[in-house]
Design a protein around this nucleic acid. Sequence first.
DNA 1: TGTGTACAATTGAGTACGCAAGCAACGTAG
DNA 2: CTACGTTGCTTGCGTACTCAATTGTACACA
Lengths: 151, 151
Amino acid sequence: MAPAVRAWTRLLRAHASTTRLLNTQLQLEHGLTINDYEALHLLSRAEERRMKRVDLARRIVLTPSGVTRLLEGLEQAGLVERAGCPSDLRVTYAQLTEAGADRLRQASCGHVGSIRALFEEHLSGAEVEELTELLGKLPGVAECDEACPAV
Amino acid sequence: MAPAVRAWTRLLRAHASTTRLLNTQLQLEHGLTINDYEALHLLSRAEERRMKRVDLARRIVLTPSGVTRLLEGLEQAGLVERAGCPSDLRVTYAQLTEAGADRLRQASCGHVGSIRALFEEHLSGAEVEELTELLGKLPGVAECDEACPAV
DNA sequence: TGTGTACAATTGAGTACGCAAGCAACGTAG
DNA sequence: CTACGTTGCTTGCGTACTCAATTGTACACA
């Protein structure tokens, strides 16, 4: 079996296992899916806490329709609201509300803790860095990171 | 931001991008989803080309019901068939048919090619190995590999 | 021998997407 | 200014899952 295939298989499995775990935790404790969280998180550190829906889609790796549905839920929950763009009437921004920022704050501590527990229990600090580095080389993974200010 | 979070985010993105790509290719060219392929592949290298549905579920990281639905499709396509277990009437094996083996053979060359293209275009051989190694340390990722003979 | 617990598999109901199609607003070429 | 291609977003429809509940079997123990 080609080495690449092993890597690919493990990527599949790694995603499935970790996602399942983190998603159920996040959902139970805060009523958010991973993508909900991811969206809130991106918005929270975007300029003026808002993003074009298309850009959001690219960042979370979803289709535009996926974003529409995702934000639908967040809007109903009052965590995100729509804001028009005066210079281009086609675009509608997704704007984080105060409630959304609160909810994110509540969830983030536990969520980050879960992630750290998951990764740091099995990998050393250097290995985590190494993994980040390697995954970043895959197409479309790292490309937007610079645009996103570090915490 | 904790390093683990960066790693996690990239894992999410890496999975989403690569999966989307590989899935559409596989689907267009051979009418199989990634999980279809994965199931056929696992069966093909299992003893007597069959597995308990539960074991299959663990390997592809799916719930038992997910496996039922997955195999439903493969059974209708004639690629997999059911086989009872005489010693334990609860279990039904998923058994790869000749047609299933053929279909897998047809698909595998192109699919493996796509995977290699995806990984080896951006990562060196050593890096692929390294990535495999690191992903294997995540919980539940490497555990069954020994049971699966290398190609 | 019956009885309780554990397990394999399925089924029904619900969800989170993708794809294709559509609409409206933009940019540009004529 | 009009016509046309492009872009941002949404909608209808289909699909691949999950979870909870159910059925049938296996096994331990009184």
